[in-house]
Design a binder for these strands. Structure first.
Lengths: 117, 117
DNA sequence: GTCATACATCCATATTTATCTATCTAAGCG
DNA sequence: CGCTTAGATAGATAAATATGGATGTATGAC
């Protein structure tokens, strides 16, 4: 994940005759694009999308062992997907004894959701 | 992108004593999860997100040369990103003479948007 | 016809990612 | 203390991805 958005300087425009509307720029701010894309990227895997789907309904009530049982994947792989979601700021976890309970962080999906609307 | 969702058979449950709510499943259907994740994945890059952002406002009015000028990226790289968006069913293109005009396909973001709400 | 232009495709490369096995850590139990 | 169990981490590997240079393919101008 590059932090540089690679946006060209806004002054640099092609001097050619217009083939289309000139001076077009994204409406979204570069840093918002970065944050929104990061969330979308984390959701861009069917396993992770389903994990979030489960956690939205059963926040704080489902331990990881239950999440692992949902998929035909190894425990470390599910743990990896949870880590990706954690690093994207989408989920958080609480440890209670031996078990870890994950939840969707409130508002974590808000920016993406807003942008889509 | 694996087509197999790796969902475990729903009958297989851990026989151990309950550490959490048993019999939890995603609310989302596996095929919908696959489609939604595919769209999210395509949006999971700041360049592509900004491309879609521009096309939402200037659909059919911006040629690729203008899109290339927006970023500090080569033309083949922008073309690659547009292809990813095309293959995800998010954008379409029309050629007019030498130029190609892209647009966001109506409803392409609907399923993801709905799921997020 | 030749030439230039806009865009796509091909090819190579460096980086990232998904997955597993093996291992580690922390907590609970005896 | 040792043993077990839940979960995270480490390491390895195969696959996917981002990027750019070179090339191909139309189209339009001449």
């Amino acid at each position: 994940m590059t932090v540089d958005l690679e946006l060209a300087p806004k002054v640099k425009r092609p001097p050619e005759e217009s083939c289309c509307e000139p001076l077009v720029f994204p409406d979204i701010a570069p840093d918002e694009a970065l944050r929104t894309a990061r969330v979308a990227k984390a959701l861009g895997d069917p396993v992770r999308l389903q994990l979030v789907d489960v956690l939205r309904e059963h926040a704080g009530k489902v331990c990881v062992c239950e999440l692992v049982a949902l998929f035909d994947l190894s425990q470390p792989t599910v743990s990896h997907h949870l880590k990706v979601l954690r690093e994207a700021g989408i989920v958080g976890s609480d440890r209670v004894g031996l078990w870890a309970y994950y939840h969707v962080i409130p508002g974590a999906l808000e920016e993406l959701s807003q942008w889509l609307s």
